[in-house]
Every structure is written in structure tokens, then in C-alpha cells.
Computed example of a mutant assay.
Amino acid sequence: MPGLIGKKIGMTSIYDASGKNVPCTILEVGPCVVTQVKTLEKDGYEAVQLGWGDKADHRTSKPMKGHFDKAGVSPKKRMVEFTGFDRELKAGDELKADEVFNEGDFVFVIGRSKGKGFQGVVKRHGFAGVGQATHGQHNRLRAPGSIGAASDPARVFKGMRMAGQTGNKRVTVENLQVMKVMPEEGLMVVKGAVPGHKGSTLVIRK
């Protein structure tokens, strides 16, 4: 699937053709530069490696510095492989948002969700808690309740919804409609919300 790398700018809302106010997310997409073209003969599969975001030379390892020098590009912060581009690309080529996406397209947006730290079952899984505040319940309002059976099976089943680390996971949101592409500003507006905080890096695929 072809795509590009970008970052989340923030949310807004726009009016669609029917006059309905639609919540949207503004993304800064590209420009991305081709850092490597992988071939079936040499690598065993076909793909195009794209780099996004400039990175200081002193923060780049020597092997990666050589990798970028071979492609004739400056060091990049993030690299992702894509397939399915409709034109032949070579190392050093630059891709912008309007060259890959069009208004009306449906895209997948991949990012890392906001980290919430260690949370209980009410916030993490939407539990209601145990009982009400009456009838002697003084410390069970946000408790998980029973987590297993008695002597049979005498264990807690794997995958039980319990307290733990919440967020900070790779999340893919599918079928977000591209509402607007602004090539001059390098921006793209998609319908709905995408994972991550403002300024977080995203992968946008068709």
C-alpha cells in the first residue's frame, strides 16, 4: 500500500458538501524522500523506503550516516517502507501529499496512542465498579470485583481485564476519509480522530 509519513497538527471542524459540521484532524504530510529502493533480486522483496524529518548529523550513527549518504539525502528521523506506488521511484526522489492522496480517498492512519500510565479497570476497561455507595460499600466503588472461579479451574484465565499500563501502544485507525489536501502548506485534513498527541509522528497509508 502506498503512503507517506507525517505528524499530527491538531483537530478542527469543517463543513462538508451537505452543510454538516464534521470533526477533522489536520495532518502535516511529507515531504518524504526515497532513501532506498528494495528489489526482488537483491532484497527478496520489492518496497520503497521513505524518510521523513531532518535529523542532526551528530545524532546519527555512522552506519545510518553511510546509508543516507548512499542515497544522497540528509539524515532522517523516521523511515518506513511502502509498496504499490503507481510510478517508478529512485533514491533521492521527493514525494508530497498531493502526489499520493486525493480528496475523497480513504486512508489508514497508524500512530502511538497517548500514554495514560498505570490505570485501574474503570478507566482502562470501562468497568462500573462494584455496587453503589450505600449498603456498607465504602471502598469498592472502583474495584474490579471477582477475577476467577474457586477450586475449579483454580486459576485466573489469561487475558482477564485488569488494571495495568494504559495507552502508549501502536494503534491503526482505518477508513478515514480525506476531506481536503493543501499541497502548498503540505497539509491534509482527514475526517475523525487519529491516535497520538499533537506533534506525534504518523504513518498514513492508502
Rank of each mutant, 00 (worst) to 15 (best):
T35K: 01
T35R: 00
D86A: 10
D93E: 06
D86L: 07
M79A: 13
E103K: 12
H58W: 14
F85N: 09
F68I: 09
E88P: 01
D86K: 14
D98A: 12
G44Y: 03
K70H: 13
K38I: 07
E88T: 12
D57H: 10
A56E: 14
I110W: 03
L95N: 00
D57V: 15
G84F: 06
P75M: 12
G72A: 09
G84I: 11
M64V: 08
A71S: 14
E94F: 11
C32Y: 03
G30L: 01
D69T: 08
A47W: 03
F101T: 04
K70S: 14
V34K: 10
H58F: 15
F85Y: 15
W52F: 15
V48G: 02
P63N: 05
G66M: 08
V107R: 06
Q49P: 01
P75C: 11
D105L: 07
D57L: 14
Q36G: 03
V107D: 05
D105C: 05
D43V: 04
K55F: 03
G111F: 08
A71W: 06
A71L: 07
V37Y: 02
V48L: 02
L27A: 05
K65L: 15
V100E: 01
V100M: 06
D43A: 13
D69K: 15
D43E: 14
G66V: 00
V29E: 03
T60K: 12
R59K: 13
G53R: 06
V107T: 02
V37G: 01
E99G: 02
V73L: 06
G104S: 04
G30T: 03
V73D: 06
D86M: 06
V109H: 08
F106S: 04
I26W: 07
S61C: 09
K62R: 12
